[in-house]
Design a protein around this nucleic acid. Structure first.
Lengths: 160, 160
DNA sequence: AGAAGCAAGACTCATTTGGTCGCATATTGT
DNA sequence: ACAATATGCGACCAAATGAGTCTTGCTTCT
């Protein structure tokens, strides 16, 4: 069905939450703009343990920095403008390929009988490109300027 | 992992096969450019029974016409230029939504707590648009003119 | 009549997802 | 020092999905 896993969803939501935190930092935190896994989970009604694991993978991937101990938690490792949705999805769901033909080694399971991998690889690249252009910062809705900006940047014309 | 199911893969391969058949029709067939499920399955080493079911769904969706009996088989219901990859995928895999937030009724499973559905819906629309622009005819590689034509049509710039 | 082919549903099996539990380790406040 | 608060990590489990098979029946051509 060509869909993101819930984990990736949760990851994006968490990153968005942290990006918002970073905008109004409270000085009492070891890391600026940090929040604990439990706090984020509560905010979005996500199973806390599950989110914890997701944030750990994100931290391992270098997208988040973590800090243990009281008042610890996670914070964005980079500016929200410098983290793409693609990185997040890739860190959580692994390398994404639109078709089973395209594997990491570039070999096709169908042992050469697959005849459609070339055109689909291009679609794949386009989607990758699309998600790379979408940044965490774009997920935050600003009342003044519409969040469409990232996608409308000449790359893709959006139908209807 | 954001990937197509194998069924959709098989479906696209079969459609491509039929599109090629339609180019050089043999007069002995009840439908011009027809091929049996078994013939296609043999050509690509796909499990015959599985492909049969896929072709049936495709026929029910109106993308193929079927003809039972000896020398029967399937043929494209329309010209290969008028069938998009999107229709095929949608017929086989069902409506595709990039995130679990976006359902058929537009309601979010997370009961309003999901904050990222709007930007993702736009990505979703872009992918839909992308796949709609890719036609079956584009899957056939012509030695003379490159199959890139459809994707390079100003819609998306392909990275690397 | 019989072979070739489609139509359709039930059913099995493996993989993936979503989620939980428990324990270890690190940090901080008192 | 010690308890409270957090992350880090691995094992585990159940439900859903995906891939593929089997069986039975129907249609058309020879």
């Amino acid at each position: 069905m060509l869909r993101l896993t819930k984990k990736a969803d949760y990851g994006l939501m968490a990153l968005k939450y942290l990006a918002e935190q970073a905008q109004c930092p409270s000085a009492s935190q070891p890391i600026s703009g940090a929040a604990s896994a439990k706090a984020i989970a509560d905010a979005y009604h996500i199973p806390p343990q599950l989110l914890a694991k997701i944030l750990q993978t994100l931290a391992k991937a270098g997208l988040l920095v973590s800090h243990a101990g009281t008042n610890g938690g996670y914070a964005l490792a980079r500016d929200a403008h410098d983290i793409s949705a693609f990185e997040v999805i890739r860190a959580i769901d692994g390398p994404l390929f639109i078709t089973s033909c395209i594997t990491i080694h570039g070999t096709c399971d169908l042992a050469g009988h697959c005849t459609i991998k070339e055109p689909l690889r291009k679609v794949n690249d386009s989607i990758t490109d699309l998600l790379s252009k979408l940044r965490i910062a774009d997920l935050i809705e600003h009342a003044d300027h519409p969040p469409d900006a990232a996608l409308a940047g000449g790359l893709v014309t959006i139908a209807r």
